[in-house]
Design a protein around this nucleic acid. Sequence first.
DNA 1: GATACCGGTTGCATAGTGCACCCGGAATTT
DNA 2: AAATTCCGGGTGCACTATGCAACCGGTATC
Lengths: 171, 171
Amino acid sequence: MAQAEQHRSGCPINLSLEVLGDSWSLVVIRDIMFGNRRYYRQLLGESEEGIASNILSSRLKQLTDQGLVTKQQDPAHKQRQLYSLTEQSIQLVPVLVQLGSWGRKFLPVSPELSVRAKVLEDGGPLLWERFMAELRVVHLGVPSSQSGPSVHDDLDQAYREAVAAGEASSG
Amino acid sequence: MAQAEQHRSGCPINLSLEVLGDSWSLVVIRDIMFGNRRYYRQLLGESEEGIASNILSSRLKQLTDQGLVTKQQDPAHKQRQLYSLTEQSIQLVPVLVQLGSWGRKFLPVSPELSVRAKVLEDGGPLLWERFMAELRVVHLGVPSSQSGPSVHDDLDQAYREAVAAGEASSG
DNA sequence: GATACCGGTTGCATAGTGCACCCGGAATTT
DNA sequence: AAATTCCGGGTGCACTATGCAACCGGTATC
């Protein structure tokens, strides 16, 4: 108790924004989710946007506190911390897809970085569900019940083809 | 030229977050969209979350600059400024629905404020399209090609019923 | 002619962001 | 064994954004 009203309102959109409404949280989740970056240095160094270390640290802490990310030690390397998604953040897939779809329509996106968004957009809810199932296997340790090609691999493949096409036309 | 790289990256999700990634922009759009609040004082005073006037002013200016909102004078009242959505912000409906849906699943939403989200969630993409068509009529002046009950009215009706039910059970 | 309404602005304190650099411990290389 | 690299961060500082309250001149209403 006594922690009663810490929220601006009980509106679902508002509450979601209280959790996700800044410019970095969803970028970090995107990198873990689509880029499969699981370690701090990966998230820091391989970030397209160049997030600062203190911001990344603060966001990972926040996301962990809010149950969107878990952190566990790599048993082989004492220092290595493995960051994973939770069911809660895995269910952000539709949000991220819609955000990406909207960005593709109205903002100056780069072709290479938007192919993944296009594939997910075109694939529709059924593809999202398959992707979420894969994320559950990787991040939650759910036993894999799927056969056939991985959505993650398909997304990466599409990305690599776009990069190759871009280099061919510009170089 | 020479305004070249003002973006962190060309990723659709990142670019969307550069535009929408703060805790107020989407709340303002939500109020215009679902609450049909079209004037500054309405947005200021009838806000569930109690936005501050300088923040509201700054957000409306930003959103206008980014093409998500337009502002026009009410011909009858010289002071009155009417804020409207644009096609770009109308197409945020799926994003807002997914955000609301996610919030409903994982955050401490209030029953009254989340019925709209539930109706839109259950209605699916076809309902979203109908709602977007209505928004185009109201905000863009597109001639109405629809008959039958309005989605907006249905959402409001559901909200009022939830309020009544809440009052009955708690009072 | 007074009052309330209109869309904001201003000042100020506090909190968050962005940047560069630094840190000690653990793992790896030589 | 010694040196280097890798690990997840922390620190200091300047700048910007947020939140609050009080205020503003013009306009419509009574």
